[in-house]
Amino acid sequence: MADAATLKQLNLQKIRNAFLEGEPFSKTELAEKTGLSFPTVGKIIDEMVNSHQLQIVGMWNSSGGRCSRIYQYNPDFRNAIALILEGPRLDWFVLDSLGMTKNQGRIEIESDSDLFDTLAGLLLQARRQEPSLCGFCLGIAANTNGETVQQSFEYPQLKGINLLKELECVSGLKGSLGNDMWISAEGCWQRCRMNDQTTLISFYLGSCGFGSSFVIGGKTLKGAHQVAGEIELLPWIRKEGLNMNAWPETLPKAILHCILTYAIITDPDFIQLYTHPFFIQHFDEIQTQLNTCFTGVQPPVLLLSDDFRADYEIGLSRRAMQLMNAMESSL
């Protein structure tokens, strides 16, 4: 049996989840929606108003007795900033507690500038402009273990740095760090409303080369050393020199064998190729080879998607919301 503190936390989460849908409620409506008793709802609502999680937005007319107050989640209770570091650009957007974008911008990074100082400066500026800012989520075109940049062909000056810890220390914010393929694949899983049993493999040609990721049930498979899917670490893949601006006319055997091997080892529901002239040109060839490998059984569904950027932003927003919700749950 749950103790009183655990039960209160469960009830609080039920009420918070209802409000995070964006609709206003009276206490009576919220009790009906959550199945909780009116006194329980009333007590939690009053506490959430006092902590500024909720705001009173009006009154319902009543056929008798006192009018009911209407409550809505305060979108500025907590904010988080999402950052995308790719090539010479640092894009950012600020999310409110309901996941809506409040502000956004881009910084062009000079070749001789200190990249860490640029990141730290942006976070400090955001804190000054957004008093409710509580966290950041950074996506980077590099191999990370969630804290430290383990390998980066694009940003060698960051290699070996515990980027998460350093940015948290300088900014005073709670943070999250992940590479671009992890985050975009998680975003695709959410955008396509895949279920908790769905397995997805994604492949992408970006400025840093050929990348991939595995997502199972909405979570990225990272491996024991956080290098699962980092196929540019394979010498024969890196030798091909594929990136968003350079690719061969014919499909290299090393690339085809990599896709097919991943498919056979993981037997996914979906294989996603993010739109690029290279993948468009060789889509039918890849599909034919997949059909050959999966003779007698249904092959994975091969997708061609131009939503990499959208998935990246969805994935970052998802992580930002999880970060803010975790902070609220600890209140």
Rank of each mutant, 00 (worst) to 15 (best):
N74P: 05
G172F: 05
V170F: 15
A254Y: 10
Q129N: 15
I56R: 11
T148S: 07
G135A: 01
N145P: 06
D91R: 11
D117Y: 07
D180H: 07
S97E: 08
Q9R: 08
Y73Q: 08
F153A: 14
A263C: 12
Q272V: 04
E21D: 04
Y204M: 05
W236P: 02
E168S: 04
S51I: 11
S176R: 11
A82F: 06
F270A: 07
N79Y: 01
L221E: 04
E130M: 12
R318M: 07
D91E: 15
F77D: 05
L119Y: 07
I255P: 01
S329N: 13
L290I: 09
I271Q: 01
G139V: 02
T6Y: 02
M327K: 03
G42R: 01
W92L: 05
R128L: 14
D196K: 14
G217F: 04
F116D: 04
A5M: 15
S329Q: 14
A310E: 11
R319A: 01
D180P: 01
I314T: 01
N243I: 09
R89M: 11
S152G: 12
I107F: 10
L304M: 04
C169N: 15
L316S: 03
A126P: 02
R89A: 13
Y204I: 02
S176Y: 14
L20P: 08
P88E: 14
R319Q: 14
I265R: 03
A31G: 04
A246D: 15
L122A: 10
Q197G: 05
D269W: 08
F93M: 11
F270K: 04
A254N: 13
Q226S: 12
G105C: 06
I70T: 10
T295S: 10
E29S: 05
L30D: 00
G146S: 00
N103F: 04
W60G: 06
